[in-house]
Amino acid sequence: MRVLWRFVARRVASGIVLLIAVTAVAYALIYSGGTNVAQNILGEFATEEQINEKAAELGTDRPLVVQYVEWLTRAVQGDFGDSWFTSQPVLATVLTRLSVTGSLVVVALTVAVVVSLVLGVAAARRRGSAGDRALQFVAVTGEAIPNFWLALALVSAFAISIPLFPATGYVSPGVSVTGWLFSLVLPVIAIVVGSVAGAAQQIRGAVIEVLQKDYVRTLRARGLSERSVVLKHALRNAASPALTVFSLQFIGMMSGAVLIERVFALPGMGNLAVDATLQGDIPIVMGVLITMAIVVVVVNLLVDIAAGWVNPKVRLQ
């Protein structure tokens, strides 16, 4: 048990280092682009003198590194600065949007995990069959079709032509659970198709690899049912590559959700970031980027720990 805790502690430490590095890269990307913050705030008719004064006031005339350290010191205390346009604190604004993106991604990922596992395992068991080849075709198609195009087509078909689902908008589950589910059906389908296309093939590969192992043959020789061979032993041994696949899917969904949020006018983080970008509200953009990075790093950490837990060699070393 102590070994496991040491393993977890090591991963947490490396996660924190990673996160600091991510913020540094993000800060450098956003603020080194030559954006003149003071100019942005004062507008284009400000004089040179006013701009310099404002810059000194904001501290943006100092070296980038100094600014970053100051930003980081505040960010650690939960202060991500204020929006340049609404003057609202960035963190509060971002967090209200996180629940929308979060529910979209969590629901989509859950569906994607279940569907890819079912399809991947089925295709692995019937390798070379018509169904297996069909899955390969679907995988290429699903990956080639952009999720936002699928979203538009779904809206056109199932919200406009046949008005089954709402075309736009988000209903909080606190207001109405059915309304929430209904508002998520089309967005989730749009995300899941591409995700399953990528993941199912990789699950298939991982399961095939396990099914070819000697111990699977021996388990079969013992007379165990195909059910326990595949669902218990093969899946358990394919769990670690599967976890990697799904954690990458999660990262992709997190930032790819922006397009889906745009199509369905969902008030998520992606929509917030795009609006802020179009307005030039840099603190908000930075806040969204950092929040996403934190979520991704935390999830990666959990996946790492889960992978360690699944693999006795890691857990017990």
Partner: peptide, 9 residues
Amino acid sequence: VLPSMMVLI
């Protein structure tokens, strides 16, 4: 680890 779409935005 970087959310790619968000970085591009």
